[in-house]
């Protein structure tokens, strides 16, 4: 056998190894059941998440994304996996990730124009607050903690479920600050 054939076989082997690894070990972002972001499992439709939220009494984070949006990638690789954030998300939130290319129904339901967008809802489906766009991890952690604490305190005090509290949060300028960096496409 001549050297060129040997070299060809080596190259083909390299390609086979690559394809095997690429198919089996490339991070899957979503399959038919779940979306995997930040090492967590996310529901893919609002209805699934809402049902669980109602059952457990946890607030929901509904995250709108697409595979081509670079700021979503930043959210997914930097913001959500940030250890303190991840801990809160896993313990205290029902997570829903809406792929805007696929789930048009929920995209339209919440009138989301561009990815990324993060929406917080309580267990009965009322919107607590909305972050339109990318937000750095520290700021996101702040909002997340606020929403969680608010939700908890609201549950203890049984005065007209959280109307003032909700207003207080939606009216703060918190979300205004965060608007920066919304990529324009």
């Amino acid at each position: 056998m001549n050297t060129k054939k040997v070299l060809t076989i080596i190259a083909l082997l390299a390609v086979v190894v690559f394809v095997f690894y690429a198919v089996n070990a490339t991070p899957v972002i979503s399959d038919n059941e779940w979306t995997y972001i930040g090492g967590m499992e996310w529901y893919q439709t609002y209805d699934q998440g809402a049902a669980v939220a109602q059952e457990t009494g946890k607030p929901m984070l509904v995250y709108f994304w697409t595979i081509w949006c670079t700021y979503c990638e930043k959210m997914q690789t930097e913001v959500f996996p940030y250890p303190p954030t991840k801990k809160i998300l896993e313990e205290d939130f029902v997570r829903v990730a809406i792929d805007m290319d696929v789930n048009k129904e929920d995209t339209n339901r919440f009138n989301v124009q561009a990815p990324p967008q993060e929406l917080f809802l309580d267990e009965s489906g009322d919107i607590i607050t909305r972050i339109p766009g990318y937000i750095p991890e520290e700021a996101f952690l702040d909002v997340l903690t606020q929403v969680r604490d608010l939700h908890k305190s609201r549950k203890k005090t049984v005065i007209t479920p959280g109307v003032e509290a909700k207003n207080a949060l939606t009216n703060t300028n918190e979300t205004e600050h965060i608007k920066e960096d919304q990529p324009n496409r």
């Binding site: 690429a22 490339t26 972002i29 399959d31 038919n32």
Partner: peptide, 14 residues
């Protein structure tokens, strides 16, 4: 029906 996360890292790595 599976979405892979093929990012810059995928290409850089391989």
């Amino acid at each position: 029906g599976v979405k892979y996360s093929v990012t810059a890292q995928f290409f850089n790595l391989w």
